[in-house]
Write a protein that binds this DNA or RNA. Structure first.
Lengths: 121, 121
DNA sequence: CAGCATCCGCGACGATACTG
DNA sequence: CAGTATCGTCGCGGATGCTG
């Protein structure tokens, strides 16, 4: 058994950033460390359950770092690890591609169910 | 509201390549045009329904091109469009990143359910 | 050979309530 | 503030069978 499941690295990468909220998390964390609630507010429409879950997976993947200040009231900061930053680097071209072709993509995707683009006037 | 659903191009890109079999399809099509059955065999464990569906979405997205030879028995070839090739280009670094860190990723992902790790050729 | 229709399970995703 | 636990929905993805 190859035990390697992944055929073209792309699979591996997608397994890491494929979660519904992961790209957004990565995006917001790329600039600077963020507190939990801060992050949630930044993303806007994510539930605690999902945010925590995705955050934990990213943490398990070694992409993000969790810093607990052990204070009362609680204060926790999330940030990208060095490893996570290499991922962010690798993501840049794709991000640029997406930005450049947002219009086309959005148009077609919205036809598939208004999943990502809701208020596309 | 931003009316743009997508915050960072990354979202847009993921909406395009996020399907379960899309990376594999892209991967196999990147090298050369492929016939339907050929493609299905190459991927191995994909059902007709899924392959067709993903292929159609990619086609609607302008990523892949469908060439029907109108013959009997039927012959259809799928290939990347010029647009699709720009996407493939943007994907390379991510692909490389995934390849480079397959080990780490695979380890963690397999803990989450052996979901993506199974289809080896 | 290429593709479509249908049924169905299961896991992702989400809303709500509760805790330290 | 930063989570956790539970329950319910929804649609993705898979298996099977049929058609041109």
């Amino acid at each position: 058994m190859t035990t390697s499941g992944f055929i073209c690295g792309l699979d591996a990468a997608l397994a890491v950033i494929g979660g519904k909220w992961k790209p957004l998390i990565l995006y917001h964390l790329a600039h600077e460390a963020r507190r939990y609630g801060d992050l949630r507010r930044a993303i806007g429409t994510v539930s605690d359950k999902m945010l925590i879950q995705q955050l934990k997976e990213l943490e398990a993947d070694g992409i993000v770092d969790r810093l607990d200040y052990k204070e009362i009231p609680p204060r926790v900061e999330y940030s990208l690890t060095a490893f996570g930053k290499t991922l962010a680097e690798a993501l840049k071209p794709l991000c640029a591609w997406g930005t450049e072709h947002v219009a086309e993509v959005e148009k077609v995707v919205s036809r598939r169910g208004t999943s990502a683009a809701e208020s596309a006037a």
